[in-house]
Design a protein around this nucleic acid. Structure first.
Length: 282
DNA sequence: CTGCGGTCCTGAAGGC
DNA sequence: TGCCTTCAGGACCGCA
């Protein structure tokens, strides 16, 4: 699912392809996905491509923003020639390697005949078009503002399990299920315990482990695992799924201690951890 | 204010 | 084989 590293990868690949281009038309195939008046984007030039947390924003001239949230199954595909949008491999969630597909919800056309396809199998994702850049409340975990002090301060006022807190976008923006699980494993912390039970040393380790997991995800261009729809704008897959240590690895041995990785539910979400080296005994 | 459970939606997986 | 049921999952909403 697109979390910070996946959205950052989309941004890095999309930006050079659309910078300076003028939007000629937007086809809204699923009205509930697009919030705002799409016709007002026509004739506007792309001046930047931004990201905050899991939200991608295309900045247009005269202070307008097309902001995307990919939720679980959103994809963004770019085609140099929209008359002939063919990709190397079959696109996950689509029946073939051609766009548009049955899960294409919005098409943004540019004056040079290139286009962006916003695909969303489950229709949870959205595009918001307005004069503000859509941003989550919490601090982006890749930004300089995500300091150890900020991290610690925002752990103080809750008794929810640490893993649920890490995924709270109002506190820390960009961490989803994959990177929360991986970071907790690296820091050897039990996902179920409340933040109050963490020692100073564990907080330090966890802060660094979050940064490490996110950076590793970006380095591998995001994760395109078994049940994941995520692909890069050219239709190719990311590689971080081959680096998973605990996420979806239940039943396999922990590479650190050999204990079998377990799956439980926390806050209604699948949670993967090693019951031995992630136990709360320090 | 906090937390919890229901909701959106679809494809995949499981049961008989 | 095939139909029916259950489940996963990010964020939001209403309620306690």
């Amino acid at each position: 699912m697109p979390e910070l590293p996946e959205v950052e990868t989309i941004r890095n690949h999309l930006k050079p392809n659309i910078l300076g281009k003028v939007i000629s038309k937007i086809d809204v195939l699923e009205p509930k996905i697009f919030i705002g008046d799409s016709t007002k984007a026509e004739g506007k030039r792309v001046i930047d491509v931004l990201r905050s947390g899991k939200v991608l924003s295309i900045e247009l001239e005269t202070g307008l923003f097309l902001s995307f949230h990919f939720k679980l199954s959103g994809q963004l595909l770019f085609a140099h020639d929209s008359q002939n949008a063919v990709y190397k491999d079959k696109i996950p969630g689509a029946s073939s390697n051609k766009m548009p597909s049955s899960s294409t919800r919005v098409i943004i056309h540019f004056a040079d005949n290139s286009a962006i396809y916003f695909n969303e199998v489950r229709k949870f994702g959205w595009i918001k078009f307005s004069d503000i850049q859509e941003k989550p409340k919490g601090v982006d975990v890749m930004s300089k503002k995500f300091t150890k002090e900020y991290f610690e301060k925002n752990l103080a006022n809750t008794r929810r399990p640490i893993k649920v807190v890490l995924m709270d976008q109002d506190r820390y923006a960009g961490i989803g299920n994959i990177y929360a699980n991986e970071a907790l494993w690296e820091a050897k912390i039990d996902p179920s315990i409340p933040p109050q039970k963490l020692t100073e040393s564990q907080i330090n380790k966890l802060h660094q482990a979050i940064i490490n997991a996110i950076q590793k995800g970006i380095k591998h261009q995001g994760s395109s695992g078994n049940d994941e729809m995520y692909v890069l704008p050219d239709g190719s897959k990311g590689g971080f799924q081959y680096q998973f240590v605990v996420y979806q690895q239940n039943g396999k041995p922990c590479p650190r201690c050999g204990e079998i990785i377990k799956r439980i539910k926390l806050g209604g979400r699948g949670t993967f951890f090693c019951p031995k080296c992630q136990s709360n005994s320090i």
